[in-house]
Nucleic acid binder design. Structure first.
Length: 277
DNA sequence: CTTTCGTCCTGACTGC
DNA sequence: TGCAGTCAGGACGAAA
């Protein structure tokens, strides 16, 4: 569900409430999500100070005193909900709740595809889910030459290639569709077939759409599962050009096309067959 | 090696 | 109203 802009928004939302605070209690309501929680997680975390929060790809990293870092992934349906400690709330699927003196932070995830793990801070980069990730799309490490290199020799469709977190980290189904639309590249194109010009346009489109989405607080689609940590909805969904808009007119004013939906690698792709080539 | 496919799980929506 | 079927923002492991 959440992609890079949503994860970034959530991380920024919880950082002020956690950074510098001490964890006074950790409630574990369920043994594990995608991976089992470290044994006795609750006890090991109590008394730790939160040093800093950051994001890598779709992972939120919460660095703690004691040389360990909480690695958190929201999966498809994960949500972090911040509440005041003197007005606690509980909802179904609150799997883990972190408490500071002032606030509680619930990790809620109905589908349980999310991940919460505790890793040695110095080894976070080598932690298997993070180890093979490609460049951060908003960093200077991601440019047209790097993308071209990652796509070289790939026969898979460009849509599928961009979902591969080893190529570029943090994109998901929504923003891949949106970036391809902005770059006017058809999702069915073989990854290695893009011209230098197209690769350049695609790199710029990825950066632009992610930046705009972060500014809007992410996208909250119709099921409204994604929320900011304070409960507010993102509003970038109103600006999506193609995602979930099959049948609608292409938003390019000079284009007479209609948005189509196809399935690639088991995932929906939305695009304009007229102006994306 | 690369690429596709099924699977993990719940909830929301569609159509009969 | 009920119920079966479909689909979902992700990621992994097995299989080809």
């Amino acid at each position: 569900m959440p992609e890079l802009p949503e994860v970034e928004t959530v991380m920024r939302g919880i950082a002020p409430a956690l950074a510098g605070q001490t964890l006074v209690k950790v409630a574990v309501n369920r043994a594990g999500l995608r991976a089992p929680f470290p044994k006795a997680l609750a006890k090991r975390l109590t008394g730790r100070r939160v040093l800093a929060l950051s994001r890598r790809a779709k992972y939120i990293l919460i660095a703690l005193s004691g040389g360990e870092t909480l690695v958190l992934h929201l999966g498809m349906s994960g949500r972090l909900r911040l509440f005041a400690a003197d007005a606690p709330t509980a909802e179904p699927h609150d799997h883990v709740v972190l408490y500071t003196a002032k606030t509680g932070l619930a990790f809620n995830d109905p589908r349980r595809f999310g991940l919460l793990d505790l890793v040695a801070t110095e080894a976070v980069g080598a932690y298997p889910p993070l180890a093979g990730l490609g460049p951060e799309p908003l960093s200077e490490a991601f440019d047209a030459a790097v993308l071209a290199g990652a796509l070289a020799g790939k026969r898979t469709p460009i849509k599928t290639a961009l979902l591969d977190q080893r190529v570029v980290a943090g994109l998901g189904n929504i923003y891949v569709c949106e970036a391809l639309f902005r770059a006017r590249v058809a999702p069915t194109r073989a990854a290695a077939s893009l011209s230098g010009r197209e690769t350049k346009a695609l790199t710029a489109a990825v950066k632009a759409v992610l930046t705009a989405a972060i500014a809007a607080g992410g996208s909250s689609l119709s099921d409204a599962r994604y929320r900011r940590a304070d409960g507010a909805l993102g509003y970038f969904q109103t600006k999506l050009a193609v995602y979930d808009r099959q049948g609608e007119a292409c938003p390019r004013k000079t284009c007479a096309g209609r948005i189509e939906r196809i399935v690639q690698a088991g995932r929906s792709s939305f695009f304009c067959p007229v102006c994306q080539h």
